[in-house]
């Protein structure tokens, strides 16, 4: 007895899922606005804002999953190291299992994020307008 793998309804379901996937890709890939001159790098751990750094000042920071952040390169505990350079942020090192965050390309546009799920760390770019911290720091 031969049996077809796909029935007509399976194909309809497949088409519907593909359409949802493609539509979502377009929404996510839409061109991002440039972040402007006073853009900042927002560091969030487990949903809490932990730090905010200017995007135009080159520096390295080591973010620990327990909430501590130190300047420069650290390595103990669950950590993520970010490098701010040439108005871009990159996750250059982490001891997380998946290493997806490390492979992510550097970000520079408003709303872009690098996420390290195992450590619950989110790095994102916020545009300068209305961002109070920068103006106060200057």
């Amino acid at each position: 007895m031969r049996r077809a793998f796909f029935r007509k309804n399976d194909i309809i379901l497949l088409a519907a899922l593909l359409i949802v996937g493609i539509a979502a890709s377009f929404v996510i890939a839409r061109p991002k606005k440039s972040a402007g001159d006073n853009a900042s790098v927002l560091v969030m751990i487990a949903g809490r804002e932990k730090a905010r750094y200017p995007l135009n000042e080159d520096a390295d920071y080591t973010i620990h999953a327990d909430g501590r952040i130190e300047d420069g390169l650290g390595s103990e505990g669950d950590y993520n190291i970010i490098r701010i350079e040439n108005n871009k942020v990159d996750m250059i090192e982490s001891d997380c299992r998946s290493q997806i965050c490390v492979h992510h390309k550097p970000i520079s546009k408003q709303g872009e994020t690098i996420i390290c799920l195992p450590h619950r760390v989110v790095i994102s770019i916020e545009s300068g307008q209305g961002g109070g911290y920068d103006t106060i720091a200057q």
Binding site: M44, A46, G47, R48, G111, T113, L117, R120, V122
Partner: peptide
């Protein structure tokens, strides 16, 4: 939910 961000 774990990361606390919709950007996921």
């Amino acid at each position: 939910l774990l990361v606390g961000q919709r950007s996921v």
